[in-house]
Amino acid sequence: MSATERMTRPAVAVPVPGGAPQHYRRRRTRQIGWAFVAPFGILFALVFIVPITYAAYLSLFQDRMVGGPSFVGLANYTKLFGDAQFWDGVTRVVSFTLIQVPVMLVLALVLALAMDSMRLRGMRFMRVAIFLPYAVPAIVSTLMWGFMLGVRYGLFGSINGWLGTDIDPFRPSTTLISIGIMVTWAFTGYNMLIFDSVLKAVPQELYEAAAIDGAGEFRVIRAIKLPALRGSLVITVIFSIIGTFQIFNEPQILPSMVANSGITTYYTPNLYAFNLAFTGSQQGYAAALALVMAAFTIAIAYAVQIRGMRDALDQ
C-alpha cells in the first residue's frame, strides 16, 4: 500500500451504483422500529405512566373539605410513615403473605406433580375442576365462603352443632385465616396450571434416561422435575406476593355479611387507601399510600427475582 495508491482514492464518497445511502437506510429502519413499538408505547404511557405521574402529583397535595386542595410537599409521606393504621395493615398483609403463599404454592406443586405422575384417572376433569375457582369472581367467592363459614346459619353452624365445638371462622382472631382459605382456594389451580405446563415441556428422553438408570418416582421428582420447575416457581412467588399485597375484595365485602369480624377500614393497605380516598376524601394521602405500597411491592418482587435467579445460576 503506497502513498500514491492512497492519493488516487477519491476524497469524497461517490455514490455506489445501485445502493441507497447507508445512513438513510439505517434511519428508516429505526423509524420503522418505533412504529412497531408505538402501539405498546402509547398504551403504556396512557395506562401506566400518566396515572402514576398523576398519582405522584396528587400525593403532594392535601385535600380539605374546607379550603380545597393545598400543596403540602412531602408531608403526606412523612405522615404516612408515622401512621399506626398504615403499619397495622402492612404488617397484616406481610404476615399473611409469609404463611399463605408457601401453603398455596406447595399445594399447587403437589397437585401438579400428582397430575404429571400419569397414575391418576380423570385427569382432564380434575385439572379443570381445580382451576375453576380461579374463574369465579372474587366477590362471588367471598359471598359463597361467607355463607359456608357463617356460624349462625351457615355450614359451620351445622358442623359446630354435630361436633359440639364452638369454632367461629369470622372472629377477629380467625378472620385472616378464613380469608387465607378463600384466596388459596381461588389461586391454587392457577398456579398448578403454570407448574403443569412446565412439567409437560420436560423432554421425554430425560425420563427414559432416568428409567434406564433405575431411578424411582421420587428420585425423578427430585432430580428432574423440581429443577425444571425452579424458574416457574420464582414467577409464581412473585405473582402471589403481588396478589396478596393487594388483597381488597374479601375484607371489603365480609363486614356487610358477618358482624364483628374484626375487619377495620385499614385492614389491608389497599382497603385503607380506598377508604381514605372515598370516605375520608383524602385523595392526596391515599395517593401517597398507594405509591409507597407500589414501591414496597416492586422492591420485594425484585428481591425475590434476583434471589431466585442467582440460585438458578448457582445450579
Binding site: 355463607f147 357463617g150 349462625r152 355479611m257 358482624a259 364483628n260
Partner: peptide, 14 residues
C-alpha cells in the same frame, strides 16, 4: 345479642 348484626342474613332469620 352482640353476635347478630342488622341487615345480615342471620338477622332476618332471627
Amino acid at each position: 345479642n352482640t353476635k347478630i348484626s342488622a341487615w345480615s342474613d342471620d338477622w332476618n332469620r332471627a
